[in-house]
Protein backbone atom coordinates (compact mmCIF):
# COMPACT_ATOMS: atom_id res chain seq x y z
CA UNK A 1 0.00 0.00 0.00
CA UNK A 2 1.57 3.24 -1.10
CA UNK A 3 1.56 6.56 0.76
CA UNK A 4 1.47 5.05 4.25
CA UNK A 5 4.20 7.44 5.30
CA UNK A 6 4.32 11.12 4.56
CA UNK A 7 7.52 13.03 3.91
CA UNK A 8 8.50 15.48 6.58
CA UNK A 9 11.50 16.54 4.54
CA UNK A 10 10.42 18.31 1.41
CA UNK A 11 12.10 19.32 -1.79
CA UNK A 12 13.16 22.41 0.09
CA UNK A 13 15.65 20.12 1.86
CA UNK A 14 17.04 18.80 -1.40
CA UNK A 15 19.13 20.88 -3.71
CA UNK A 16 17.09 22.44 -6.48
CA UNK A 17 18.05 21.25 -9.94
CA UNK A 18 19.43 24.65 -10.88
CA UNK A 19 21.79 24.43 -7.92
CA UNK A 20 23.18 20.98 -8.53
CA UNK A 21 23.82 21.82 -12.15
CA UNK A 22 26.44 24.36 -11.17
CA UNK A 23 27.57 22.85 -7.93
CA UNK A 24 31.20 23.69 -8.44
CA UNK A 25 30.57 27.39 -8.52
CA UNK A 26 28.34 27.03 -5.48
CA UNK A 27 30.94 25.09 -3.57
CA UNK A 28 33.60 27.62 -4.45
CA UNK A 29 31.21 30.35 -3.38
CA UNK A 30 30.38 28.60 -0.13
CA UNK A 31 34.04 28.19 0.65
CA UNK A 32 34.56 31.87 0.10
CA UNK A 33 31.60 32.96 2.14
CA UNK A 34 32.30 30.65 5.02
CA UNK A 35 29.35 28.69 3.58
CA UNK A 36 25.75 27.70 4.04
CA UNK A 37 24.26 31.17 3.87
CA UNK A 38 22.78 30.18 0.52
CA UNK A 39 21.11 27.06 1.87
CA UNK A 40 17.47 26.75 0.83
CA UNK A 41 14.66 27.61 3.19
CA UNK A 42 13.21 24.93 5.41
CA UNK A 43 16.63 23.90 6.52
CA UNK A 44 16.65 25.80 9.74
CA UNK A 45 14.05 23.49 11.24
CA UNK A 46 15.91 20.33 10.36
CA UNK A 47 19.52 21.51 10.19
CA UNK A 48 19.94 19.70 6.90
CA UNK A 49 22.46 20.35 4.20
CA UNK A 50 21.12 19.64 0.74
CA UNK A 51 22.69 16.77 -1.18
CA UNK A 52 23.07 17.35 -4.91
CA UNK A 53 22.47 14.52 -7.38
CA UNK A 54 26.07 14.37 -8.55
CA UNK A 55 27.22 13.98 -4.94
CA UNK A 56 24.81 11.09 -4.39
CA UNK A 57 26.04 9.37 -7.55
CA UNK A 58 29.77 10.02 -7.14
CA UNK A 59 30.36 9.24 -3.50
CA UNK A 60 29.24 6.02 -1.92
CA UNK A 61 30.23 2.56 -0.81
CA UNK A 62 29.44 -0.36 -3.10
CA UNK A 63 32.34 -2.72 -2.41
CA UNK A 64 31.31 -4.90 -5.33
CA UNK A 65 32.99 -2.24 -7.47
CA UNK A 66 35.91 -1.43 -5.18
CA UNK A 67 36.55 0.06 -1.77
CA UNK A 68 37.09 3.68 -2.81
CA UNK A 69 34.20 6.11 -2.66
CA UNK A 70 34.53 6.89 -6.36
CA UNK A 71 34.92 3.27 -7.49
CA UNK A 72 31.16 2.65 -7.87
CA UNK A 73 30.78 5.67 -10.15
CA UNK A 74 33.87 4.57 -12.09
CA UNK A 75 33.07 0.91 -12.63
CA UNK A 76 29.32 0.37 -12.25
CA UNK A 77 28.67 1.09 -15.94
CA UNK A 78 29.90 -2.47 -16.60
CA UNK A 79 26.88 -3.88 -14.80
CA UNK A 80 24.00 -5.19 -16.91
CA UNK A 81 20.67 -4.75 -15.19
CA UNK A 82 18.42 -5.99 -17.99
CA UNK A 83 16.96 -8.51 -17.73
CA UNK A 84 16.63 -8.55 -13.95
CA UNK A 85 14.66 -10.82 -11.68
CA UNK A 86 14.33 -11.16 -7.94
CA UNK A 87 13.98 -14.65 -6.53
CA UNK A 88 11.58 -14.63 -3.61
CA UNK A 89 11.67 -17.89 -1.66
CA UNK A 90 11.64 -19.45 1.76
CA UNK A 91 8.50 -19.14 3.89
CA UNK A 92 6.24 -17.62 1.22
CA UNK A 93 3.06 -18.83 -0.49
CA UNK A 94 4.24 -17.95 -3.98
CA UNK A 95 7.96 -18.57 -4.30
CA UNK A 96 9.59 -17.89 -7.64
CA UNK A 97 11.47 -15.50 -9.85
CA UNK A 98 9.83 -12.12 -10.06
CA UNK A 99 10.86 -10.16 -13.15
CA UNK A 100 11.77 -6.57 -12.34
CA UNK A 101 9.42 -5.19 -14.99
CA UNK A 102 6.53 -7.29 -13.64
CA UNK A 103 7.18 -6.03 -10.13
CA UNK A 104 7.25 -2.43 -11.34
CA UNK A 105 3.97 -2.81 -13.20
CA UNK A 106 2.25 -3.84 -9.98
CA UNK A 107 3.73 -1.22 -7.66
CA UNK A 108 2.87 2.40 -7.04
CA UNK A 109 6.09 4.38 -7.16
CA UNK A 110 6.25 7.26 -4.72
CA UNK A 111 8.94 9.66 -3.61
CA UNK A 112 10.54 9.41 -0.17
CA UNK A 113 13.03 12.04 0.93
CA UNK A 114 15.10 10.32 3.60
CA UNK A 115 18.15 11.09 5.64
CA UNK A 116 20.91 8.62 4.78
CA UNK A 117 23.50 7.97 7.50
CA UNK A 118 26.57 5.87 6.75
CA UNK A 119 28.20 3.94 9.61
CA UNK A 120 31.37 5.86 8.69
CA UNK A 121 29.72 9.00 10.11
CA UNK A 122 28.89 10.81 6.88
CA UNK A 123 25.41 11.59 5.71
CA UNK A 124 23.24 12.78 2.86
CA UNK A 125 19.60 13.57 2.19
CA UNK A 126 18.33 11.47 -0.70
CA UNK A 127 15.06 11.83 -2.63
CA UNK A 128 14.37 8.15 -3.37
CA UNK A 129 11.66 6.78 -5.62
CA UNK A 130 10.27 3.37 -4.89
CA UNK A 131 7.65 1.27 -3.18
CA UNK A 132 7.29 -0.18 0.27
CA UNK A 133 8.99 -3.53 0.79
CA UNK A 134 5.78 -4.74 2.43
CA UNK A 135 3.94 -4.44 -0.87
CA UNK A 136 6.43 -6.78 -2.52
CA UNK A 137 6.31 -9.22 0.40
CA UNK A 138 2.49 -9.20 0.23
CA UNK A 139 2.77 -10.13 -3.43
CA UNK A 140 4.73 -13.25 -2.48
CA UNK A 141 2.49 -14.04 0.50
CA UNK A 142 4.52 -14.24 3.70
CA UNK A 143 3.71 -17.30 5.81
CA UNK A 144 2.93 -16.89 9.49
CA UNK A 145 6.03 -18.84 10.54
CA UNK A 146 8.36 -16.27 8.92
CA UNK A 147 10.23 -14.02 11.33
CA UNK A 148 13.08 -12.58 9.27
CA UNK A 149 13.82 -11.45 5.74
CA UNK A 150 17.19 -12.20 4.15
CA UNK A 151 18.49 -10.29 1.12
CA UNK A 152 21.22 -11.05 -1.37
CA UNK A 153 23.07 -8.86 -3.87
CA UNK A 154 23.96 -10.01 -7.37
CA UNK A 155 27.19 -12.04 -7.55
CA UNK A 156 28.79 -11.46 -10.93
CA UNK A 157 32.56 -10.91 -10.58
CA UNK A 158 33.03 -10.44 -14.34
CA UNK A 159 30.97 -7.25 -14.09
CA UNK A 160 31.72 -6.38 -10.48
CA UNK A 161 35.51 -6.09 -10.13
CA UNK A 162 35.39 -5.70 -6.35
CA UNK A 163 34.03 -9.23 -6.06
CA UNK A 164 37.33 -10.56 -7.43
CA UNK A 165 38.98 -9.52 -4.16
CA UNK A 166 38.14 -10.82 -0.70
CA UNK A 167 37.10 -7.49 0.84
CA UNK A 168 34.02 -9.30 2.08
CA UNK A 169 32.51 -12.73 1.62
CA UNK A 170 30.50 -12.56 -1.61
CA UNK A 171 27.67 -12.31 -2.36
CA UNK A 172 26.74 -9.49 -0.03
CA UNK A 173 23.89 -10.48 2.26
CA UNK A 174 21.71 -8.50 4.61
CA UNK A 175 18.67 -9.09 6.75
CA UNK A 176 15.83 -7.52 8.67
CA UNK A 177 13.40 -8.67 11.28
CA UNK A 178 9.98 -9.14 9.65
CA UNK A 179 8.42 -6.24 11.57
CA UNK A 180 11.26 -3.99 10.39
CA UNK A 181 10.74 -5.19 6.83
CA UNK A 182 7.00 -4.49 7.05
CA UNK A 183 7.47 -1.01 8.48
CA UNK A 184 6.05 1.73 6.25
CA UNK A 185 9.43 3.50 6.18
CA UNK A 186 11.19 0.47 4.67
CA UNK A 187 11.50 1.14 1.00
CA UNK A 188 12.48 -0.79 -2.11
CA UNK A 189 14.04 2.07 -4.03
CA UNK A 190 14.06 2.02 -7.81
CA UNK A 191 15.11 5.58 -8.51
CA UNK A 192 16.66 8.86 -7.31
CA UNK A 193 15.52 12.36 -8.23
CA UNK A 194 12.77 10.84 -10.41
CA UNK A 195 15.20 8.94 -12.63
CA UNK A 196 15.82 5.18 -12.62
CA UNK A 197 18.31 4.02 -9.98
CA UNK A 198 21.88 4.78 -11.12
CA UNK A 199 23.93 1.58 -11.36
CA UNK A 200 26.45 2.78 -8.76
CA UNK A 201 23.64 3.31 -6.27
CA UNK A 202 22.28 -0.23 -6.57
CA UNK A 203 20.28 -0.56 -9.79
CA UNK A 204 17.73 -1.69 -10.56
CA UNK A 205 16.33 -2.06 -7.07
CA UNK A 206 17.75 -1.74 -3.59
CA UNK A 207 16.61 -1.61 -0.03
CA UNK A 208 16.43 1.66 1.92
CA UNK A 209 16.01 1.44 5.69
CA UNK A 210 16.48 5.07 6.72
CA UNK A 211 16.82 4.53 10.47
CA UNK A 212 19.69 2.07 10.07
CA UNK A 213 23.29 2.60 8.96
CA UNK A 214 23.65 2.65 5.20
CA UNK A 215 25.23 -0.79 4.80
CA UNK A 216 21.91 -2.36 5.84
CA UNK A 217 20.35 -0.88 2.71
CA UNK A 218 21.54 -3.66 0.40
CA UNK A 219 21.88 -2.88 -3.30
CA UNK A 220 21.12 -4.63 -6.60
CA UNK A 221 18.98 -7.30 -4.93
CA UNK A 222 18.53 -10.69 -6.63
CA UNK A 223 17.10 -12.75 -3.78
CA UNK A 224 14.72 -12.22 -0.90
CA UNK A 225 14.25 -15.17 1.46
CA UNK A 226 11.74 -15.36 4.30
CA UNK A 227 13.10 -17.36 7.21
CA UNK A 228 12.39 -18.12 10.85
CA UNK A 229 16.02 -17.60 11.91
CA UNK A 230 18.09 -14.44 12.07
CA UNK A 231 19.95 -14.45 8.76
CA UNK A 232 23.71 -13.81 8.53
CA UNK A 233 24.73 -10.32 7.36
CA UNK A 234 27.94 -9.51 5.50
CA UNK A 235 29.54 -6.87 7.72
CA UNK A 236 28.56 -8.76 10.85
CA UNK A 237 30.31 -11.86 9.49
CA UNK A 238 33.35 -9.79 8.56
CA UNK A 239 33.80 -7.80 11.80
CA UNK A 240 31.19 -8.90 14.38
CA UNK A 241 32.55 -6.57 17.06
CA UNK A 242 31.96 -3.51 14.87
CA UNK A 243 28.76 -4.25 12.96
CA UNK A 244 25.71 -5.85 14.54
CA UNK A 245 22.59 -7.33 12.98
CA UNK A 246 20.43 -4.35 13.95
CA UNK A 247 22.84 -1.48 13.20
CA UNK A 248 20.27 1.15 14.06
CA UNK A 249 21.59 4.70 13.87
CA UNK A 250 22.35 5.53 17.48
CA UNK A 251 24.42 8.54 18.55
CA UNK A 252 24.88 7.03 22.02
CA UNK A 253 26.52 3.81 20.89
CA UNK A 254 29.94 4.46 19.35
CA UNK A 255 31.57 2.42 16.67
CA UNK A 256 34.67 0.89 18.32
CA UNK A 257 36.88 3.05 16.13
CA UNK A 258 34.97 6.33 16.02
CA UNK A 259 32.16 8.27 17.64
CA UNK A 260 28.66 8.08 16.19
CA UNK A 261 27.50 11.20 18.01
CA UNK A 262 27.90 13.44 14.98
CA UNK A 263 28.15 13.20 11.22
CA UNK A 264 29.61 15.09 8.28
CA UNK A 265 27.04 16.02 5.64
CA UNK A 266 28.59 15.30 2.25
CA UNK A 267 28.44 17.98 -0.43
CA UNK A 268 28.92 20.97 1.85
CA UNK A 269 32.46 21.65 0.67
CA UNK A 270 35.70 22.11 2.51
CA UNK A 271 34.47 23.76 5.68
CA UNK A 272 31.21 21.83 6.10
CA UNK A 273 30.30 21.65 9.78
CA UNK A 274 29.51 18.43 11.53
CA UNK A 275 25.90 18.02 12.64
CA UNK A 276 24.62 15.98 15.58
CA UNK A 277 23.41 12.51 14.68
CA UNK A 278 19.77 11.91 15.61
CA UNK A 279 18.45 8.80 17.39
CA UNK A 280 17.26 6.35 14.74
CA UNK A 281 18.53 8.92 12.25
CA UNK A 282 15.60 11.20 13.08
CA UNK A 283 12.92 8.51 12.74
CA UNK A 284 12.62 7.79 16.44
CA UNK A 285 8.93 8.62 16.56
CA UNK A 286 8.20 6.11 13.81
CA UNK A 287 10.43 3.19 14.78
CA UNK A 288 11.36 3.35 18.49
CA UNK A 289 8.42 1.05 19.23
CA UNK A 290 10.04 -1.77 17.28
CA UNK A 291 12.82 -1.97 19.86
CA UNK A 292 10.94 -1.42 23.09
CA UNK A 293 12.60 -3.20 25.99
CA UNK A 294 15.69 -4.04 23.97
CA UNK A 295 19.15 -3.04 25.20
CA UNK A 296 20.39 -1.15 22.16
CA UNK A 297 23.97 -1.30 23.43
CA UNK A 298 23.82 -5.05 23.35
CA UNK A 299 21.84 -5.29 20.13
CA UNK A 300 23.91 -2.74 18.20
Amino acid sequence: MAYRWKNTLTHEDVTPKSAFLNRRQIMAGMAGLGLASIAPKGQAATDLEPTPLDVITQYNNFYEFGTRKDDPAKYAHQLTTKPWAVTIDGLVDHPGDYAFDDIMSQMTIEERIYRFRCVEAWSMVVPWNGFELKDLLDLAGVQSSAKYVAFETLYRPEEMPGQRAPFLEWPYVEGLRLDEANHPLTLMATGIYGDPMPKQNGAPLRLVVPWKYGFKSIKSIVRITLTDKEPPTSWNKSVPSEYGFYSNVNPQVDHPRWSQASERPIGGGFFAKRIPTLMFNGYEEEVAGLYEGMDLRKFY
Binding site: D54, Y59, W122, I266, F270
Partner: peptide, 13 residues
Protein backbone atom coordinates in the same frame (compact mmCIF):
# COMPACT_ATOMS: atom_id res chain seq x y z
CA UNK B 1 42.21 20.71 -5.83
CA UNK B 2 39.94 20.71 -2.79
CA UNK B 3 38.40 24.00 -3.86
CA UNK B 4 38.32 23.30 -7.57
CA UNK B 5 36.41 20.06 -7.00
CA UNK B 6 39.22 17.79 -8.20
CA UNK B 7 39.28 15.99 -4.86
CA UNK B 8 35.68 14.91 -5.28
CA UNK B 9 32.64 15.65 -3.18
CA UNK B 10 34.33 14.98 0.16
CA UNK B 11 37.52 17.03 -0.12
CA UNK B 12 38.26 16.85 3.62
CA UNK B 13 38.54 13.06 3.74
Amino acid sequence: AAFSGDLGVDPVK
